[in-house]
């Protein structure tokens, strides 16, 4: 039988968005199926009693995704969908790679204090310009606006 004493006091469920890791919340109950300690986030009330997310999923109760509040799985499937249909090329000019050893964006990562803003990550050139943006006002707009024919703004957006 699994020794649960080592984890007594802490939730034993693994969760996370980018990577799975042990939950560090205090446990409040045990899963009725696998006897795992679970916190109030990871314990789900069922007619049988409290169950952990894994046991609940394995029983496939409905189409419910019980862990979504702290592990938004829907974004993972959407990521894989968009990534597979991605038209982004590796030699795309938008990808900029600094030379090995040169790291302009890194102001010495080892010196960062916990949670400090490392730098101003504003994506502009310091002047509020962002290059060519499809939403920018253009010369074409200027001509279109000469005649105020009552076109609404949304129509003008298409013109640019």
């Amino acid at each position: 039988m699994q020794d649960l004493d080592n984890f007594e006091g802490n939730c034993q469920e693994k969760s996370g968005f980018l990577f799975k890791h042990l939950c560090d919340r205090p446990s409040v109950d045990r899963c009725v199926v696998c006897a795992k300690c679970v916190c109030d986030f990871h314990g789900h009330q069922t007619p049988m009693g409290t169950q952990c997310a894994i046991c609940l999923r394995s029983r496939d109760i409905g189409s419910e995704t019980p862990n979504d509040s702290i592990y938004p799985t829907a974004y993972h499937s959407r990521y894989h969908h968009y990534q597979s249909t991605n038209s982004f090329q590796n030699n795309d000019p938008r990808v900029t790679i600094s030379e090995p050893g040169v790291d302009p964006s890194d102001d010495s990562a080892s010196n960062l204090g916990d949670g400090d803003f490392t730098e101003d990550i504003a994506p502009d050139d310091g002047d509020g310009n962002f290059g060519n943006d499809p939403a920018d006002f253009t010369e074409g707009d200027s001509e279109a606006f000469q005649d105020d024919s009552g076109n609404d703004f949304e129509t003008d957006m298409g013109a640019s």
Partner: peptide, 9 residues
């Protein structure tokens, strides 16, 4: 808009 890759970031 951009994807910037450096040694550590």
């Amino acid at each position: 808009k951009t994807l910037e890759i450096s040694n550590t970031s």
